[in-house]
Amino acid sequence: MYKGILFFLIACLGFTDAISDPGAGYNLSEEKGLYAKIADVPLNTGSGNIRLPELYQQTPVMLAFIFTRCTGICNPFLLHLKDNLESLGSKEKFKVLVVSFDPADSLSDLNKLAYRFGLQDNDQWIFATTPQISKLVNSAGFYPVWDSSRQQFDHDALLVGIDKEGLITKKLIGLRDVKSLNWMIRSIHDEFMLSYPLPRENMLFSCFSYDPVTGKKSPSFGLLFLVLPAILTIMLLVWFAYQSPKWRLKSAQEIPPAKN
């Protein structure tokens, strides 16, 4: 028996290990590294040199990673962020820290970028470089890849929300709407936020369908799975109800009289 059990276990391990790749299907980048502390790095800004903790200890920070030579997402990303923040008109106090992750960028490059966006005199926005960019991007979970053929970085448009304790409370990847930005503002101020993942395209069985425009929920196909066990059990019992007379007849000789 022991050999059989051992064989079964080894077979299970071998089988499952051979056909699975659990890491492949998961892209939960926005949820990775939440509540980790952002690295303590020095920042070179237009108004002088400071350390990052000095900044977030005063007000929470939204940290955006860009590089000035970017021909891709960086400019639309910053423009979108600026427009959304303006339309939001939030009264909450926070800073937007734009840091270049390209070691070739200088403070003057970033000042020019700020000027291009009309943000050079906006106190809420800080454009900075840091000599410890690797430490900063690693702590934020941001991993740009240099493409030498295009002379560009492959990277996400990542916005990192940092609260007054330096903890990463939220990440947003891509060009996001005002609503998402509002969540980030609330999260960096350590407000409790209700959240639930919405049904996605490859989610075949969800309990409810949700219309984000109207906010209405309607029952969906997945709810059947909650009823299915009861249906199958009832079917089993109905089948038993028809079969049990045969069993009783068959085993009538073996059964002791009932004790009441």
Binding site: S20, A24, G25, N202, M203, S206, C207, F225, L228
Partner: peptide, 27 residues
């Protein structure tokens, strides 16, 4: 136990589909 079977099938479906099938956390 029938419910557990359905639950495990959904877990396995996601695990072995390499991300092409996702489950609904609420379900």
């Amino acid at each position: 136990l029938i419910t557990a079977v359905i639950l495990l099938i959904l877990f396995f479906a996601e695990y072995y589909s390499n991300g092409s099938f996702k489950n609904d956390p609420l379900l």
